[in-house]
Design a protein around this nucleic acid. Structure first.
Length: 466
RNA sequence: UCCCCGGUAGCUCAGCUGGUAGAGCAGGCGGCUGUUAACCGCCUUGUCGCAGGUUCGAGUCCUGCCCGGGGAGCCA
């Protein structure tokens, strides 16, 4: 028997005709001669109401004993709901000719037909996709992912698969996870008693990637425009609502591009992705606006409709110093902007997204392009209301002598960056790129407060179940 | 890693200044109604996070540990 998705059923022009549904029971209501089954299959937020009566095959032996969480298959007719139900927004329902139990769920099924705390749901990550909120999050993740690919494909970018395992601790972006096949209880030692790393799988220390950027630069200096979109790992012991040990990152890299071009790209990118998500997930977005974050839709519209403000770091600091606000953390040239500063700037002072450019070299990474003032680098942070920094990027230092000097100046060994420096030796061109934490993007879209609730299987310190 | 808060039934939570554990939901039985977090009646459910300590007596007070959450730092 061919089954139709509930999304498909609800999208029909009109009632009438055969309807087949398979899914999981959200709740059951029994009356004397009738049973009402709320069935959901995850194809959309809405479930569909199935009505069974004594004529329904399986009424006595199946329907009357159904419990929340059970999987069932229904065959029947799609009909218009009665007038009163229509007022509640329920257009169609299925009058069941037959209800079949596919997989029962016992009375210990943890998901009740009521609110659960997100904290509890995290402990049952194998069942939480069946909830309204997580289901909506997963559909939004899907739509946003596809929109990201669409955007870059339309703009002539190539999807580059950067490696997960890397031997370079190049970027200093954070603590790394070691990847090894060495036996931890009997490490091979060299003659002087140190761990024999040459005996390891790759013949040298290896780690999970903290960024695909350096490899993306290789791609950009061959294909001109590339992007990566893959998992990224940070072994930081940070336990906050904004950090994961494993998350997904989007990193476009563009050859023959400066910071201005990059800021324009970032702006087009965010506007495109948000517009697609709003267009394709209206039901899920209405849910988030109603139940999670009232401003979820409004603030995406702000990003889509308002031009971003370009603001050099130096001016941002001056504005903050003159603001008269009392901040918890000090403001001053050479200090990073704190979340409270970012949010005040974009939410209170400007009221639309802000791109802060040209940051002090002292607080930014070695690979960023040194501006003519010698004091700042061509870096940018895109700040949006609600979450602060959504995108961080920079024009890269493409001048060999400058890059080598900075690497040495930071006490790093140029030999370790030989291939990265080679890119500056052979046909170097100005290029730029940015990084976007995908889960933070989904947090902004949905308004979900905790990053662990916007990824199906969160990894955090001490947590890797499921 | 630091600061703060918390851990009581399958879930959400109550339990005041110590006196021996409760409500709603879920589940079972019955009733009722085209029901919508349905409703009404009855019934079942607990190593009160773990280990010590104080006390005649600890869910309640003290200490340590484990786990979770919020905030901070690091960052995406």
């Amino acid at each position: 028997m061919a089954y139709e998705s509930i999304r498909g059923l609800l999208a029909r022009e009109s009632a009438g005709g055969r309807a087949t549904v398979q899914g999981w029971l959200r709740t059951v209501r029994h009356a004397k001669e009738l049973s009402f089954l709320e069935v959901s299959d995850g194809s959309c937020l809405s479930g569909i109401q199935v009505v069974a009566n004594p004529e329904t095959r399986g009424f006595e032996d199946v329907v009357r004993h159904l419990t929340t969480g059970s999987a069932i298959a229904v065959e029947g007719a799609l009909v218009d709901s009665p007038g009163k139900s229509q007022e509640k927004g329920q257009r169609f329902e299925v009058h069941a000719a037959e209800v079949e139990l596919v997989g029962a769920a016992g009375s210990d099924y943890p998901l009740q037909k009521k609110r659960h705390s997100f904290e509890f749901l995290r402990t049952i990550a194998h069942l939480r996709p069946r909830t309204n909120t997580l289901g909506a999050v997963l559909r939004i993740r899907n739509a946003a992912s596809m929109a990201i690919h669409e955007f870059f494909q339309h703009e002539g970018f190539f999807y580059l698969h950067s490696p997960i395992v890397t031997a370079s601790d190049a970027e200093g972006a954070g603590e790394m996870f070691r990847v090894t096949t060495l036996p931890l209880d009997a490490l091979p030692k060299t003659e002087d008693g140190r761990i024999d790393e040459a005996a390891d799988f790759f013949g040298r220390p290896a780690f999970l990637t903290v960024s695909g950027q350096l490899e993306a630069e290789i791609g950009a200096l061959a294909l001109s425009r590339v992007y990566t979109f893959g998992p990224t790992f940070r072994a930081e012991n940070s336990n906050t609502a904004r950090h994961l040990a494993e998350f997904w990152m989007v990193e476009p890299e563009v050859a023959f591009c400066d910071l201005d071009g990059l800021a324009e790209l970032a702006e087009r990118f965010l506007k495109f992705v948000f517009a697609k998500v709003l267009d394709r997930c209206p039901e899920d977005m209405a849910f988030f606006a109603e139940r999670i974050e009232p401003k979820a839709i409004e603030r995406m519209r702000t990003v889509i409709e308002q031009p971003f403000l370009r603001l050099p770091y130096r001016e941002a600091i001056a504005i903050l110093e003159r603001s008269g606000e009392t901040f918890e953390f000090p403001v001053g040239f050479g200090r990073d902007l704190q979340s409270e500063h970012e949010r005040w700037l974009t939410e209170k002072h400007v009221g639309r997204p802000v791109v802060v450019t040209d940051w002090p070299a002292s607080i930014k990474a070695f690979y960023m392009y040194r501006n003519d003032d010698r004091e700042t680098v061509a870096a940018m942070d895109v700040l949006v209301g609600g979450v602060g920094e959504l995108i961080g990027g920079s024009q890269r230092e493409h001048r060999l002598d400058r890059l080598e000097a900075t690497i040495r100046g930071q006490g790093l060994d140029p030999a370790a960056y030989w291939w990265y420096l080679d890119l500056r030796r052979y046909g170097s061109v100005p290029h730029a790129g940015f990084g976007l934490g995908f889960e933070r993007l989904v947090q902004f879209i949905t308004g979900m407060a905790n990053i662990r609730d916007v990824i199906p299987f969160p990894r955090t310190p001490g947590q890797a179940e499921f």
